[in-house]
Computed example of a mutant assay.
Amino acid sequence: MKSLYILGTRGVPAQHGGFETFAEKLSLFLVSRGWQVTVYCQEASGGGISESEWCGVRRVHIPVESEGAAGTIVFDWKSTLHSLSQEGLFLTLGYNTAVFNLMHRSKSKVNLINMDGIEWKRDKWGVVAKTWFWINERIGCWVGNHLIADHPKIKLHLETRVRDEKITMIPYGGDEILNADETALTAYGLEPKKYSVIIARPEPENSVLEIVRSFSSVVRGHKLVVLGDFRPNDVPFHQQVMQAASSEVVFPGAIYEARAVQALRFFCRFYLHGHRVGGTNPSLVEALGAGCAVIAHDNDFNRWVASEAGVYFNSEADCAKLFDRLLTDEDELLRMKVASRSRFLERFTWSQILSEYEILLDTWYPTK
């Protein structure tokens, strides 16, 4: 039986973000295909390392007392140390602590690294954090036996570090959503197609302020729902966004309940995606899978994912013009929604993505 060890996520089942969802999907898929899969899971409680089984997946629970970035570093360190005594193939999701993967290399472990986005380019990080990420990206490129890029643009970036044949491009996948629970909207005072939605961390690089300003420039007779953990008393940027919002902008907070998020996507008129940095964004893929009409920031990352399904803006003025035109254009709305499903089925179904991963993992499985 082939054994795979997945490092770099908070664990399964998924409760946090894209990497955790991917780890859950991949581990369950491989278990169904006869693999033995171990996922390292970060735990907040104290005590020693323990193990459990979930849906056939072996989970190694690593207790970490620290929170935030410090806790993640400690978790990655402890996970790496534990994994060195294991035999099989290793998959590390993200390069943020790639310096620890030097130990895998020194022990002749075969480790594939998903290099995620270009983290050191993100506006939210200070000089120290950006330097740390830049160094670890370089180390990851060197120590990984093979690299996985989640977007053609990320692959091109990595080709400036390593040779082309060391990189395989496999994007993230998503679920196709053909229906959702409309009653989930009532808690937020929303009706189908009478609102548009932003689902993103409230950070400058995600164009949240620009979208809110452009929407709020005139009365729309339409609502804009902005999901996210806004703390205006603590974060100046959050305060700036909320002050720029008209009375038609709704801030329901961070919503993690899958049923509610699924409904908010499925029944929206437009899904707004302002991300300027990154690779294949899981939330954008999920919007395509839900058949959303997508309005996105105009960059190579978003254009490859959404392709003809999206319409794009470069500035607040561009975004405002799109709202002016598209809020009353039913024909274009239908075209965009059909194109979203077509693009999703073309490239982003889990069946495609997970099969591509299994082929790659099979290729690199160590033989003795």
Rank of each mutant, 00 (worst) to 15 (best):
V249L: 07
V225Y: 15
V235I: 07
Q243K: 15
V250H: 14
N281H: 15
R259C: 04
V219M: 07
H297E: 14
D298A: 09
V235W: 04
V294T: 04
A287T: 01
C292F: 00
Y256I: 04
R259N: 08
E248Q: 14
S217A: 12
K223E: 04
V311D: 12
V277M: 09
N302W: 12
V241R: 14
R231M: 03
A263F: 00
A306G: 02
E286S: 10
T280W: 09
R265M: 05
V285Y: 08
M242I: 09
Y271H: 06
N299Q: 05
K223W: 05
Q243A: 12
N302T: 08
Y256A: 10
A306L: 02
A244W: 10
D234G: 00
A260E: 09
G291E: 02
G274W: 15
Q243R: 15
N302F: 11
L264N: 00
S307T: 07
Q262R: 01
N299W: 06
L224V: 10
F230C: 03
R276M: 08
A244L: 08
A245V: 07
C268F: 00
V294E: 01
A245W: 13
A260M: 02
G289Y: 02
D229Q: 06
V277Q: 12
C268P: 00
D298Q: 08
S217Y: 10
Q243T: 10
G279V: 11
W304V: 06
L264M: 02
A309Q: 09
R269W: 08
H297C: 13
T280Y: 11
V235M: 05
E248R: 10
Y256L: 11
G278Q: 12
S247V: 01
F266E: 00
E308C: 10
V305Q: 15
D229V: 03
L227P: 04
Y312P: 06
N302I: 09
E308S: 15
V249E: 06
P236H: 09
R265Y: 03
W304N: 09
I255T: 07
H222M: 02
G228H: 13
V241H: 15
V226Q: 13
V226R: 15
F237N: 05
R231V: 01
S307N: 14
E286V: 01
T280D: 08
V226F: 12
A260T: 04
N302G: 06
A245D: 08
C292M: 02
E248F: 08
G228K: 13
Y271Q: 03
Q262K: 04
N314G: 13
V226G: 11
Q240C: 03
R269L: 09
N299I: 02
F270E: 05
W304L: 05
V250G: 13
E308V: 05
R269Q: 13
G310H: 06
A290N: 00
Y312A: 09
A296N: 06
A306T: 02
Y312N: 08
M242T: 10
Q240L: 06
M242R: 13
F251I: 02
V311P: 12
G228W: 12
A309L: 06
L272D: 03
L272W: 04
D229G: 05
L227R: 10
